[in-house]
Every structure is written in structure tokens, then in C-alpha cells.
Nucleic acid binder design. Structure first.
Lengths: 193, 193, 193, 193
DNA sequence: CATGAATGAGAGTTCATTCAT
DNA sequence: CATGAATGAACTCTCATTCAT
């Protein structure tokens, strides 16, 4: 796979978009600034993307894909519910902590009306293998028989809350937090006897 | 008497700001649109607020104050840790579900760089009575001995996640969810023997 | 002559106008600022003046009248040309140095297109007694037989140049300058044998 | 070649600025009007200048430089004091009469608080060769031993007064005036035996 | 007479987008 | 493919003026 000049430029644009929207918000991330950070002309953006909306949409879709691939990369359907959940949970946390620029960008888009409604309406369907695992857990009496959205809100999203607070400079996540966070996530959704 | 008119106009501006920033984001909520929704001239905004930044800052501070007052209104320090926590938790949920415009606006501001850093840096200090309660819970061996930020992320914030998803039209919270959510919150932070 | 409340307010407005236009220029001297400095409501200005243009025009005319009255107050037509000129010259200088706010304001208006053309077209006709004196001086062979405008430019206006430079903070007029200035003025216009 | 177009547009903007500020004053010379007179979009101004203040500052500095270069272009330090002074004086007059738009603009800026203080504080230092000449004249007992600012006010600035009056339509400079003006200037500053 | 509140019109400025090269 | 120059539209904000009281 040859990395032509074009691909490099496109990548630079995607990275610049992520960085600037994270730092300054969608407003205050003008095309000219994005272009400058990517070291291209503003006009060049329009060779790769239709317009600003399309740029943000495409970046969102691509990053989300990378995220989804990453978190399920090591997951096997044969795993037990608890093992599978922990694995996925730790992959998600790993991604959010190590690729936090990308993770922050996804959260921005989830929350702000900056990407097209249609794209955002997919909701949590990209987590399908996790949803399937939870279903299995419910069937086996291991996971609470509650809505997937509740499970998501209590088991998956809190780590994002921590990340946001860290990004805002009001909290610093330290290594032991991760284990404690996992414990809390599991306690929140597991069915106690 | 003379103040009445002013107060009405100011209130209309605050409401318009909340609604438009919720719907369209800070960008795409131009002063002219805010003015029109509040049925005043754009110039009138500047009689009540110094500029757009000041408008958003002030709305944030005022709504946050209303929120904080509301959630602790019925709380008494004599309550047991578990009773106190449940009470506060339910007041928070009640506010977020019934005054969801205001709640959404607060979340917008917590996440986006649209209000001044100094104001946002207060973090979760406005929840002081809850933090004190948690401290008591930790001392009594009832609450997990983990960071308040972790407790917040797992016990308080998930309800916001649900609200956002509902606002986005991808989920509808139903009455039984609230009880299940409370159970999950408590399971996540309580110290099991 | 009773100083009613009205007259006091009008005077305050005139003074405020002079001060603000001197300090900040016509632009940057908004009606609201003028009103505030005069301690009245913006609306009150319109009880005394038709609009901003009218305000500036009237202030100009009134100050110019005060100036003209002052500089000829002690002049007698029986004086010799040289005595009469020196007397008027020194009265002009005295006014410009001691009532320099008012003097600066007149200069502003002479130079800027801020007062109505018709009013400014009067030119130097308000100096009629001086022009008459110069005519006498020309007839008597004491003053150079050149245009009154030239005489004005060389004998009267330079003191304004000094005042402006002082106001700008690039020069400080000291007492001996006045005598030297008078000497230069006289040398410039007197007819040498 | 590529720069040509830019230089043309920039020049048009500078000219438009001079003309409009002369005619209407700093106030009443809105960017939109300047743009229209220069036949460009308002936004284009901001490609060449940071803002309105910067535009006026830069125009002032550039015109002043042209003026200074012009008036000393034919001057030689070997000249006698009287010859040198007459030469410079006549170059100054020539510039003010023939490039009167530019000359008027410089006067506007000298008088009004429309350019930055720092730039205006240079005062008459741009006339250094003339100031040196005057010093020589004082040493040789040819020029009155008085402040350079007095010399400036009486020998150099009066021609501006005439120009202003002409611009205002209340006087018309005729050719013989120039010689008479020079005579008056010299009489005002030369030391009589 | 006097006012504080209100505003329409227009100021300076920015920005997503286009186009000649 | 890539660009710098250019722009119309829209933004935030100001101000001379008015009006209900």
C-alpha cells in the first residue's frame, strides 16, 4: 500500500481537524486554521472533502471505525461473559487513555450537534458484539436484565467522564483508578445472588 | 414595578439562550437568533449582558445555582449514608428529567469550551454536601474508598448519559429505568462485605 | 440672571462635548458618553439639541463667540497698528493657553468635517476688527501688503500649532516662548524698510 | 508577476483610505466605503491590513516616508543655511500643493487621535536634516536662537494652514502667495542684525 | 422637563467557499 | 493536484435616536 502524497495530506487534515475541534470546539476551528495546521491551502481541503460538514462527518466515521475495530480486536466469542466483558472494557479504556485525542473527538461528536443527525442516530449499534455478550450474560443470569442503554451508561461511559475531567485539568487519572473503575463497572451491571 | 418588564426580558433571553445552544450548539446560536426567540432587538441583549461570552457564563452560573439548590433542598445531614445518597441521587435525577433543558445546558457547558475556564474549573465542588456524605460513607465502611471523581463518574453522571441519548432520540427513558439506574449507581459505589 | 436647573444642564452638556471630542475625537464621543459625563440621560440631550450634529454646531458657534468677544475685549480702535496687533495677539495667546480646552475644540472643528459646511465657511470673518487693523497697517506701510489669509497663517495660527504639539505631549510651551512667538509673528508680517 | 495584482489592489486601498478620510473624516469612512471605492470586497482589506487601525497607521507611515524623502531629495548639506532652508521650504510647499491629498491626510493624522500614539509621538523628528540645518543657522547667528518647535510653527506649518483653508473653499492660493509666504517664513525665523 | 429602556441601522470583522493559475 | 487571492454572507457589537412613563 503506497503512501502517496495525497494520502499523507488527507491524514494531516484529519489530524488537524481532530486537534482543533478538541481544543477550540467546532466554532473556533475555522477551515483556514485547519488548513494551516495541516500545512496545506484552504482550497486543498475541498479536494478531499465536500465541505466542512462533510469533513467532520468523515473524520467521525473513520475514527469510530478505528475505535470499534480496536476494542474488539482481541475478543473471542468463546470467552465467558465476565472474561469477555473485562477484555472489551479494558480495550475501551486503553483506547480512551492512549488515543485520547481521538476518543475526545468522538465524545465531542456524540454530544454536540456538529455531525449529521443520520450518522449520530446509529447510537451504540457499533458495539454490537458487546451487546450480544450482554444478552448472553442476561440469559445466563450473570448480567442484570436491564436495558442495554442502562448497561452502557453505567459500565462503559463513566470512563469517558473521567477522561473529560482529566482533559479539563480538574482531575488526573492514576493507574489504580483503572482497576477500581473496572470493579465499579462490573459491580454496577452484574447480577448479585 | 419598573423592574418587572426588565426581569421578564432578561428571563426570556436566558431561556432563549438555553434552548438555542441546546438545539444548535454555541456556534449556530447567533445573537440575532437568540434575540428573535426572546422577542427583543439584538441590541437589547447588551443591556443585560456585556457580550455573548458573558451571556453564556451568566446563564451557566445561574442555572447551576438553581440545580445545586434543588438537589440539596430536602437533604438533612442527620440522614444515614444510604438514605442521604438515595435522596440526593433521586433529586438529581428528578431535576435532569423534569428540567431537562436546563440540565442539558449544564452538560453542554461542562463539556464544551464555551464558558470561561475559570468558571469551569470549579469542577464538582458545587456538590460539596454529597462529597461530605461520601467521606462519611468511606469512614463508616459503607462506600468504596476510591476517589470522589470515580464515585461521581459511576454514581452521578450515568443518568446524564441516558438523558443525552434520549435527547438525541436514540433511547426513551421509561419509569422503571430510574429505579434500575439507582440500583446500578448504588451497586457501583457501595462497599460489599 | 437666574441659573435655572436647565441652564446648568445645558452647560454641563456643552462642557462634556468639548472634553470628549478633544480627548477622543468626534468618532469615539458617543452621545451616551457625553450624557454620562454631563450626568444626564441620553434622552435629555435631545431636549436641548436637535441631534448630534446640531449639538456640535451650537457648541462651536457659542465657543467661537466667547473667543471672539474675549480677544477684542480690551482693544480700542484708537491704538496704533503695532500696539493694537500686539494687544490682540496676546489676548488670542492668552485665551489659547488658559482656555485651552475650548481653543482645542475650535481647532478640531476648523480642521475636521464635523461641523456643517455653512458654519465653517465664515472662515476668518469673525476676526473682522483684526482684519480692519491689518488694512490700516497696510495703508500706513507698516504691514506687508499681502492677503489677510497669509497674515493669519503666519501671525495668528502658529500659536495653535504650538498648542497642538503641547497637547500631544511632544512639546511644552514655556513662558519665554510666548514673547519669542510674538516677535516671530510680528517679524513675519511687518513691512521692513 | 503574481504580486502585481496584489500591489495594485493594495495601492487602490491606500488611495481610497486617503481620499475618504480627507473628505469625511475617520468617522464616516467605514471599511465598506473604502472597499467600494477601491473596488474590492470589504473582506479583501483584511488580506492587506490587520484592521482599520492598522490600515490608517500603515497609510500614515508610508505617506510620511514619501513626504520626507521628497522634501530632502535635492538638499545638500554643503548649502548655506539660507539656501538650504529655502530649498527645503520650497520642496515642502511643492509637495503640499501638488500632492495635496497626501499632505492633507498627514495633517489629519497629526491632529486627530486616529493613529496610534506611539507613531504620532515621533513628532517632527522626521525633519532631522532641517533641524540640523537650523542648528547650524543658530550657531552661525543667522537663525533666531529659539526652540525648533517655534521655528517649525512659524516657518513650516503656516503653509499647511493655507492649504487647509483652500481645501475648505474659503481661500484660493495664487502663485504669488508662495513667494510672499516664503518671505514671511524667513522673516519670522531669521535673526535680524 | 427628564428619564431609562429599547431599538434599527450600520459599524468592523470573520469565515466557508470559489476560482484563476 | 494544489494553491493564494478573493469574496459574499453572516457574525458580534455600537450608537444616534425615540418613546412610554
Amino acid at each position: 500500500m503506497k503512501l502517496t502524497k495525497s494520502i499523507i495530506k488527507r491524514k494531516a487534515l484529519v489530524d488537524a481537524t481532530i486537534q482543533l475541534i478538541n481544543e477550540d470546539g467546532f466554532h473556533n476551528a475555522p477551515m483556514s486554521k485547519i488548513a494551516k495546521l495541516a500545512s496545506v491551502s484552504p482550497a486543498t481541503i475541498y479536494l478531499y472533502f465536500e465541505n466542512k460538514q462533510d469533513l467532520v462527518n468523515k473524520v467521525f466515521i473513520e475514527i469510530k471505525e478505528i475505535f470499534t475495530t480496536f476494542i474488539f480486536e482481541t475478543y473471542l466469542e468463546e470467552m465467558t461473559v465476565e472474561d469477555g466483558f473485562e477484555l472489551i472494557w479494558r480495550r475501551i479504556s486503553l483506547f480512551k487513555l492512549e488515543q485520547c485525542k481521538e476518543a475526545m473527538f468522538l465524545m465531542h461528536c456524540d454530544f454536540n450537534p456538529i455531525i449529521d443527525k443520520k450518522i449520530r442516530e446509529e447510537g451504540i449499534t457499533h458495539l454490537q458484539p458487546l451487546l450480544d455478550l450482554w444478552q448472553r450474560g442476561k440469559n445466563e443470569g450473570i448480567i442484570k436484565p436491564i436495558s442495554n442503554y442502562l448497561l452502557f451508561a453505567y459500565a462503559i461511559n463513566p470512563i469517558s467522564t473521567l477522561l473529560i475531567m482529566q482533559q479539563q485539568g480538574i482531575y488526573t487519572i492514576n493507574p489504580s483508578d483503572i482497576n477500581e473503575a473496572y470493579k465499579a463497572a462490573w459491580d454496577a451491571i452484574k447480577l448479585s445472588k
